[in-house]
């Protein structure tokens, strides 16, 4: 049997799936024991009740616990403000609502991303921001190693590992050619290296209204997109299944994901081909993750993209 838990996500394993039965049986056993001992061992029960603390004693604990929580919070907030040598620099533009994520997490305002994605799903316009992704990667300093770049509806997020000094101002300055509202966080991983997380909006993002296609043309276009990827030398191509992004107003979108592995040059030429058909197809999302491994010299980057087309009713 295939079983995935999408609603009751924590119900894996024997106890999780039979926990209710187990609890019920255990409770019944406890009740039986109590019923057996109650009439015969009333003294024992009395002793037990005597050993319960008086209300005056018990009310102290919540207060003490609350104080402990306050102390812990105060300690932890000091830890953050002191930085404890971990946070070197944290910069925010006034408009940003970025939260301080742990070192291993990407600093994303999740609510904002979801809201952006939702509003994008309603839109019949297409932003062309994602096509600049590789230009933006090229702006990163030479002592940096890209871990991830994503572009969703004109919002860029980069995660970069930097060895040596982190001149964040110059990084931001270099990227300001393409991005605005840049927010960045740097965390020292050790004396010699740091982790830079950065997000920003595409500067003067161009938008275009997609022409609507009928279903046959849309399918042909998706097949063409897969062919372009192959032609550009991208390997391990996987064109995902078609999904429908309904819109409250206007035409619906069809989306298919294309993933593969290639060099920056191969991916750029694929993006150029998609961009050339910008009147009918949009790059809804783009995620680039460098591939690690011995054979990654020429095939260095994994691309995950979402190609959208607009479908007439």
């Amino acid at each position: 049997m295939i079983r995935v838990e999408l609603i009751h996500g924590n119900r894996r394993g024997w106890f999780a799936q039979n926990g209710l039965w187990f609890s019920a049986i255990l409770s019944a056993a406890v009740v039986c024991v109590l019923l057996y001992y109650l009439p015969m061992e009333s003294d024992l029960m009395k002793d037990s009740f005597r050993s319960v603390r008086s209300p005056a004693e018990t009310v102290k604990h919540p207060v003490q616990n609350e104080e402990k929580v306050r102390e812990t919070l105060s300690e932890s907030s000091e830890g953050i403000s002191d930085g404890q040598g971990q946070i070197v620099e944290r910069r925010r533009t006034p408009a940003d609502t970025m939260y301080a994520a742990p070192a291993h997490e990407f600093p994303v305002d999740r609510a904002e991303v979801v809201a952006t994605a939702a509003s994008y799903a309603q839109s019949i316009e297409s932003t062309k921001a994602c096509f600049s992704a590789i230009d933006i990667v090229k702006q990163l300093p030479p002592n940096s190693q890209l871990e991830l770049v994503s572009c969703i509806a004109g919002r860029f997020q980069l995660s970069v590992f930097v060895t040596g000094d982190v001149a964040i101002a110059s990084v931001e300055e270099g990227l300001s050619e393409h991005l605005e509202q840049i927010a960045s966080t740097v965390r020292k991983t050790d004396e010699q290296s740091a982790h830079l997380s950065l997000s920003g909006e595409e500067k003067s993002a161009r938008k275009t209204v997609l022409e609507t296609l009928n279903s046959a043309r849309a399918k042909a276009l998706f097949a063409e997109v897969e062919y372009w990827a192959d032609l550009c030398g991208i390997d391990d191509i996987d064109l995902g299944e078609q999904s429908v992004i309904p819109a409250e107003e206007g035409p619906a979108r069809w989306r298919r994901r294309l993933v593969g592995t290639g060099s920056y040059g191969q991916i750029q030429s694929f993006l150029d081909r998609v961009s050339a058909r910008g009147n009918v197809a949009a790059l809804g999302e783009l995620i680039l993750t460098p591939v690690s491994g011995a054979d990654s010299y020429n095939k260095a980057v994994r691309i995950s993209s979402a190609i959208d087309v607009s479908i007439g009713q």
């Binding site: 295939i2 995935v4 838990e5 999408l6 609603i7 996500g9 990407f106 994303v108 999740r110 991303v113 979801v114 994605a117 991830l148 994503s150 969703i152 997020q157 994901r257 995620i287 993750t289 994994r302 995950s304």
Partner: peptide, 15 residues
């Protein structure tokens, strides 16, 4: 990697 930025909007499980 696939749901980057939107993980919280999805319920995910594995086979």
């Amino acid at each position: 990697q696939f749901l980057v930025g939107e993980q919280d909007a999805f319920s995910v499980d594995y086979v």
